[in-house]
Design a protein around this nucleic acid. Structure first.
Lengths: 337, 337
DNA sequence: AAATTCAATGCAAACCTTTGCACAAAACTA
DNA sequence: TAGTTTTGTGCAAAGGTTTGCATTGAATTT
């Protein structure tokens, strides 16, 4: 095909003009005469010139790359977020580079280090489950690299943030159960070190208070998200006799499904004896028989698009945008059947 | 923090030596005296020098970036592939940049164009459903950029390829049904423009022949993967009266689930009146009641890791590796319950 | 006709690193 | 002592592009 590397120099030599003239002609610089510009453009076409972005990167010391740290790609919730991010990044001409922390702070730090070394233009992070030290993020900020946290947001760390409106979702879920004449509503929450667990709890407490429902510490349990622990905690609810809850709000769909399984094993009919609602970290398949009555949909794709939009804006303003927190709506989706 | 941009030049000036000496000292070039090397390294430490990878890229005209084109991230099968790719790419110090073609050839072409322009070191592609023209791939190859196709592989296009052992899986699936005393086994296949459909068909034909089963063109149908079409085709099977198949091999889990739904609607008991097996493009959740008896697992993560390993090898050998086709094992997973 | 302005283009630096070649001084060999 | 090797370092080019400044020739003004 083409001989070697075709650069503006090639064009310049071919036309017997200077490199800078070619560069300017190609960029429609008004200082270049119309006829010269014509010739340059035609020649560029003819020799199939494409600008070398690496040289440009060096010049501008920008890379057009965005780094995305995700705990895992093997969970639907996160891969949908990534999908949203990819779309917007693409549309804006940015390359998206993706890495999984696999919920290890150590890995997370290394990824961030690599991003810094590679001079990405911006970074988005959902922190690993065991991230307790934030010095790597401090470093990112001190270098002036735009940074956005999404979904899993570190506590008390000033930065751009994008998260779901969990609290309102929890309230909506409980109102729904209330309308179904449920009065003894329990919460089967996630690990308390997650901020998203806090929000569920706060929503629960607020709704219970507003609706004048009775509750007790026994109605609030947490699971470490393992099947075993969820079973265990659900069994505790079931064994509460006359105080047994008539509805349980679960941390997410998986927890709900496991809890429902526990019910069935104990002869408790789900959604009759005890009703379930949950938060959607997965889409509940249409093929599942015994599922929660409703889930609080979190729109992960939107979570992704909002995050990258915020990041891009920060990049555009040169990292001088004041820290913003974007809260993505949730809504209670009532499952058919 | 640091003043401006710290380069080897900074170090050189600080130490009153030349740039090249600094460069060599940092790379442990033996031509540099031990004491000079010492001083340089210490100073680098002191001023917190990090090499600028962009300049390096320009120099070597390599970018350390791998491009991955995936039809969608919102399907578990593909996001698991990506997960595998990410792990290996990371381990080898490559950045992985990801784009979704969203099953549009047009988008696919643009992604490829961007990859070429950005000078990625290698490209992996699972082609879009409607990709009929391969000129963009020809271009990639003619530029000497290493290219690997995975899962969705263009027909008759010489290149590196990584795919699942579908044919063997199909045979295994049918043997399984045979052992369950099924003798009237049908195939509900995917779109015939997909190579993976061919392979299922060939496996089916081979197994049927080997086992001496009777079949007929009526036992072989294709669906466009839409729920409607799957329903329609399944209903045709159901209405075949005394010739009705007693087992159906489905293109993938989704198709199987839809087909099963069609059965239920028509009072046909799945896995009693008609048994189902399928190929796993999704993991069948433990929560689904009516599901195929077994699925041919395709190990998508492994598909990913194998693909990127092949790509990396090709990159290492400077794109001179002879075209290879890697076939990833499958295995029939019998669902509990 | 001389002076001024303007349009069109070229030069060279800058972005940062690597590396072939050259050079100098020191050490060694004959 | 003169010649050769070794050792340690510097110069400059290369990689591709952009851009401030300088230069040229032509057109306009006085």
């Amino acid at each position: 095909m083409s001989k070697k590397n075709i650069t503006i120099k090639t064009i310049a030599q071919e036309l017997g003009i200077s490199i800078s003239t070619v560069s300017r002609a190609l960029k429609n610089n008004p200082r270049i005469g119309a006829d010269t510009r014509q010739k340059v453009i035609q020649m560029a076409e003819r020799v199939n010139y494409v600008p070398n972005p690496i040289a440009l990167n060096l010049q501008r010391s920008r890379t057009n790359m965005l780094g995305l740290v995700v705990p895992t790609l093997e969970e639907e919730f996160f891969s949908h977020i990534v999908s949203g991010v990819e779309r917007i990044a693409s549309e804006n001409g940015f390359h998206l580079i993706i890495n999984q922390s696999r919920d290890s702070m150590q890995t997370e730090r290394e990824i961030i280090r690599a991003y810094i070394a590679s001079k990405v233009d911006g970074i988005m992070v959902s922190v690993a489950a065991d991230t307790s030290d934030y010095s790597h993020f401090v470093k990112v900020q001190s270098l002036g690299i735009p940074l956005v946290f999404y979904d899993r947001i570190p506590r008390n760390f000033p930065s751009h943030k994008v998260r779901s409106e969990i609290l309102q979702g929890a309230i909506e879920a409980i109102n729904f159960l209330f309308r179904q004449d449920k009065r003894k509503i329990a919460l089967l929450n996630g690990p308390s070190n997650l901020q998203v667990s806090d929000e569920r709890l706060n929503g629960y407490l607020e709704a219970v208070k507003t609706l004048g429902l009775s509750t007790s510490p026994q109605y609030i349990k947490t699971t470490d998200l393992s099947r075993q622990d969820t079973h265990l905690k659900m069994e505790e609810f079931i064994r509460m006799g006359e105080h047994r809850p008539d509805a349980v709000v679960c941390f997410n769909d998986y927890v709900a499904l496991h809890a429902i399984k526990a019910c069935i094993e104990h002869g408790v009919v789900p959604n009759r004896d005890i009703s379930f609602v949950s938060f959607a970290n997965i889409g509940i398949g249409e093929f599942i028989e015994n599922k929660p009555l409703a889930s609080v949909e979190q729109y992960p794709v939107k979570l992704g698009t909002e995050s990258v939009r915020l990041l891009l804006e920060d990049i555009r303003t040169g990292g001088n945008t004041k820290f913003r927190e974007i809260i993505v709506e949730t809504s209670l989706v009532i499952h058919p059947n």
